[in-house]
Simulated assay, not measured.
Amino acid sequence: MSHKFIGVCLLLACLVASVHSAAKVPIAIYYESLCPDSAKFITEQLYPAVKGELRDVVDLTFVPFGKSQFFTQGAEVTFTCHHGPNECYGNKVHACAIEHIQANSYQIEYTRESLTLDFINCLMRAGKNFPDNVYPGQRCATENHINNWENIKTCANTTEGSQLLRKAGEATMRLKEPLTSVPSILFNEQFEKKVNDRAQVNFIGTLCQYVSAPQPRICAQHNAAATPSLASVSAILSSLLGLWSIRSFY
């Protein structure tokens, strides 16, 4: 086999990989760890969709900051959070988990992305219901195959956690339009209020509008459900014609 042929094959392989990568839809979730609306969206809309057929068509970025604020005094960073100090700690746990969670080579069924998503979903599902005021980090780590909870906890309780949360704050403040609601969902790095509102009640249907062909089967099902059938259109027209005839008669 000639070197030229091998080179062409490698080039084609790279092109295929590039096309596959480009097919993923970049989605950024700007949220807060104790925000009820954030929890509702992540646990009821985002998680079921991304754990299903759509897992291979999204490139998720989590930004756990929301309407928080931070202040710097020398090397120190202090935070005020929308739902109080517990949320500041929760935001740090999320930021540290996003930074430190790693896949285990002995458990190839779990990727770094899937482990992070599972962990965040567990934390958000717990909400404010912490029995005995115990933050559910360790429990969620154990339930979701996260083997380095101690590293995440240490990060959240040290300056590393503060620096990571500050980065999340800086990313939030760089938004072209200032964040006014939580969660805020950006598709392709763009925020549109109508899209954001629709995604919070129908994330799959909204996401499918951004997925290029060939679309996953679930997108075809949503498109079919959103498109009126010929029979239903005919029934609507018949009803309108009947109503018009009655009005004309009188």
Rank of each mutant, 00 (worst) to 15 (best):
Q215T: 13
A13F: 15
C88M: 01
D37Q: 07
V182Q: 04
V182D: 12
M173L: 05
I101P: 01
G242N: 10
P136W: 11
R139G: 01
L175G: 12
N144G: 08
L46P: 00
W149C: 03
A224H: 10
E87S: 12
C96G: 09
T80A: 15
N121D: 11
N144P: 03
V195E: 12
I120N: 00
I29T: 08
Q209V: 10
Q138I: 13
E87V: 14
R174K: 15
V201G: 00
C219R: 04
Q45E: 15
Y210W: 12
A126E: 02
F41N: 05
A220R: 02
H20A: 12
S2F: 08
F65E: 02
L10R: 08
G66N: 02
E143R: 10
S239K: 10
Y106L: 07
Q73I: 01
L46T: 04
D56Y: 12
A49T: 15
I108F: 08
A49P: 05
V16Y: 11
A97F: 03
T111H: 07
S229R: 14
G127T: 03
P64E: 11
C88R: 05
N104Q: 09
P228F: 10
Q200R: 12
T180E: 13
A17E: 14
F191C: 01
A75L: 02
P131I: 08
Y250H: 13
K4N: 04
I98N: 10
G90F: 05
V201D: 09
A126I: 00
W149A: 05
P228H: 12
S114K: 06
V57R: 03
F249Y: 13
R166H: 07
K67H: 12
T116M: 09
S184W: 03
S245Y: 14
G7Q: 03
Q163R: 12
S238Y: 10
E113G: 09
Q200Y: 02
L15K: 01
D59Q: 13
H83Y: 14
N129W: 00
S2D: 11
C35G: 09
N121C: 10
E177K: 08
I27T: 04
S2C: 11
S18T: 15
A213N: 10
R217Q: 10
I29C: 08
D118Q: 13
V50P: 02
N188A: 02
V63M: 09
P216L: 09
E76Q: 14
E189T: 07
A225F: 08
N188Q: 09
E189G: 10
V58M: 05
A75I: 01
A231S: 11
K128R: 11
D118S: 14
R198Y: 08
S162I: 01
L230N: 09
V134H: 06
V93G: 05
Y250Q: 06
F130N: 13
I236A: 15
A220E: 08
A141Q: 02
N133I: 01
K24R: 15
L164A: 04
N91L: 07
E32G: 11
S18R: 14
C122H: 00
S234F: 12
